[in-house]
């Protein structure tokens, strides 16, 4: 878990780093994240040359491939604005693993400086923007799965809850074994499909036991995994990335 982090004053401008999964499956989550930040009066730059943080290859042991991709991302952040990342695992990759990946390379220092200014979206909203949210939505019952990287690598699980608790019409329900992994684990789900299936099945069961109508997650990987399972079981529970959820409930035009 991350030690106490010191947060800067609200900046004028930030870089936003969406992710490959988000890009293809949940583009609206990143968009919502950018809109939330922009609404707080901060300029958002979406570097168009971003592709992927490199985490899938890194976690599979293909470090050279991961490094090549990560190197391409470094060019996206030439100035020292904060880098805000909607997904916990990509944020963890850039904040904690980039320095390891670039250790003893010419980029070592540049990467450390980047890592120091990477924030998970929820953390950024709470601690840097000190956002206050006004709920415009209809009553909803929500189960939250923060993602393991948000919870343990970034240590920002509570921030997710704090944001949802600001929404007056949202009842946050707690599923059994809330902190346990959903079994996605990137290539884990491919290499050990049966174990992964067991894990996600239990996770989905615990969530449907809460009779929540919406599952909110801080990470699109978990969301794809758990929602995929819930839908397979014909559960009516909607899956939403926390950014989309927050934006939709607080933006008049979305109502």
């Amino acid at each position: 878990m991350e030690r106490q982090r010191h947060y800067p004053e609200k900046p004028g401008r930030i870089y936003f780093f969406g992710t490959c999964l988000v890009d293809l499956l949940y583009p609206e989550a990143s968009l919502a994240g950018m809109q939330l930040i922009q609404r707080e009066g901060v300029d958002v730059i979406f570097p168009k040359d971003q592709t992927c943080c490199g985490q899938p290859a890194w976690n599979s042991g293909y470090r050279d491939e991961a490094r090549a991709v990560a190197l391409a991302q470094l060019k996206c952040f030439p100035l020292d604005y904060p880098v805000v990342v909607p997904s916990g695992s990509c944020a963890g990759m850039m904040r904690h693993h980039y320095p390891r990946l670039f250790k003893n390379t010419p980029q070592e220092q540049q990467v450390q400086a980047l890592a120091n200014r990477v924030y998970k979206l929820t953390e950024f909203l709470v601690h840097v923007l000190k956002i206050t949210l006004k709920d415009l939505g209809t009553p909803a019952k929500v189960a939250l799965h923060t993602s393991c990287s948000a919870r343990r690598e970034m240590g920002v699980a509570e921030e997710h809850e704090a944001l949802l608790q600001q929404l007056g019409n949202v009842e946050l329900v707690e599923q059994e074994r809330k902190a346990e992994c959903c079994g996605f684990g990137g290539t884990f789900a491919v290499k050990h499909p049966k174990i992964s299936a067991e894990m996600v099945s239990e996770k989905a069961e615990h969530i449907s036991n809460t009779s929540a109508d919406t599952l909110v997650s801080g990470d699109c990987g978990c969301l794809m995994n758990i929602s995929g399972r819930l839908n397979h079981q014909a559960e009516k529970i909607k899956g939403k990335h926390i950014a989309s959820f927050l934006w939709e409930r607080t933006n008049a035009d979305s109502q």
């Binding site: 969406g18 988000v22 890009d23 293809l24 499956l25 949940y26 583009p27 609206e28 990143s30 968009l31 950018m34 979406f46 168009k48 499909p193 299936a197 996600v200 099945s201 794809m224 995994n225 929602s227 995929g228 399972r229 839908n231 397979h232």
Partner: peptide, 18 residues
């Protein structure tokens, strides 16, 4: 997909939306 619905690709990419 033995235990999950397949993921659905969005109609437009994040780059386009952004």
């Amino acid at each position: 997909t033995d235990v999950r619905r397949p993921p659905r690709i969005a109609a437009r990419t994040l780059h386009e939306l952004a």
